[in-house]
C-alpha cells in the first residue's frame, strides 16, 4: 500500500521539526555549561603549567601572529601572559598542537620570563592506547623538557630521548615544545 507523496513529506517534515525543537532546548540548557567546562579546563591546564601565575591574559593579536609565524614545528593556537599575584610578570602560556600518529596532539606549555619550561601538559590526543599514550603516562618523558635551558632551540629539543614504540607520538610532543620555544624567541621582550 503506497502512501500519498504529501503524507510522506508531511511525516518527515514533522519529525524533523519536533527533533530540531527538542535539540534546541537541550542545546540552550547545556551550552553555557559546556563553555564554562572548556574555560575551566583551559584555566586548570594553565595553572598547572605555570604555577607562579595567578591570572592569565591573552596577548595582543600582533604578538600572536608573530608567534604563529615563528613556530614552524607546530601550530600556535593561543598565547597568554601570566601575572603573579603581586602583579609581576610570571611568564607565558602557549597552547600549541602538532601532528602525531593518530591526529593532532594539543598541549599547553608554560614558559617563565626567560623562556625556561615551567611545565607542560597534554590537552587532547588521539594516539594509540598503550603505545602512543605513554608520552603522557611515562613521567620522565614530559619531565625532561623542564630541564631544557632557557631560550632553547630546535636542536636542544631534538637531542632529548623519545619513547621506543612511540616515535611519532614522541615527535609530536617534541614539535609542540620546539614550536613554543621558537614562539618565545620571536616575542621575548615585547
Amino acid at each position: 500500500m503506497a502512501s500519498s507523496p504529501l503524507r510522506l513529506v508531511a511525516s518527515v517534515v514533522t519529525t524533523c521539526v519536533v527533533a530540531a525543537g527538542g535539540l534546541a532546548v537541550t542545546y540552550s540548557v547545556t551550552a553555557p555549561r559546556i563553555a564554562a567546562q572548556e574555560r575551566a579546563a583551559e584555566q586548570r591546564a594553565m595553572a598547572k603549567v605555570l604555577p607562579d601565575a595567578a591570572r592569565f591574559e591573552p596577548v595582543a593579536p600582533v604578538l600572536l601572529d608573530a608567534a604563529k609565524k615563528a613556530a614552524a614545528a607546530g601550530q600556535i593556537e593561543g598565547l597568554w601572559r601570566g601575572y603573579a599575584a603581586s602583579g609581576d610578570d610570571a611568564g607565558w602560556c602557549i597552547r600549541v598542537s602538532a601532528r602525531g600518529y593518530g591526529g593532532p596532539v594539543r598541549m599547553v606549555i608554560g614558559l617563565d620570563r626567560n623562556g625556561k619550561v615551567q611545565g607542560l601538559t597534554i590537552l587532547s590526543m588521539n594516539e594509540t592506547p598503550g603505545l602512543g599514550t605513554r608520552v603522557e603516562s611515562e613521567q620522565w618523558f614530559l619531565k625532561q623538557f623542564t630541564e631544557l635551558p632557557a631560550g632553547f632551540g630546535d636542536r636542544d629539543v631534538r637531542a632529548l630521548d623519545a619513547i621506543s614504540g612511540a616515535t611519532r607520538s614522541s615527535r609530536a610532543v617534541k614539535n609542540c615544545v620546539a614550536a613554543a620555544g621558537a614562539a618565545f624567541l620571536a616575542i621575548r621582550g615585547r
Binding site: S3, L8, T15, G22, L23, T26, T30, R33, Q37
Partner: peptide, 30 residues
C-alpha cells in the same frame, strides 16, 4: 510512520537522542 520513509525517520529520531546524550555528557562529565 509511512513504510517508504521509515528509515530516514528512524535516523532522525535516533540522531536527536544521540545529540542529547552528546551535549549532556559534554556538559556534565567532560
Amino acid at each position: 510512520i509511512p513504510d517508504e520513509v521509515r528509515i530516514p525517520m528512524f535516523i532522525v529520531v535516533i540522531a536527536s537522542f544521540v545529540t542529547i546524550v552528546d551535549l549532556v555528557m559534554k556538559a556534565f562529565v567532560p
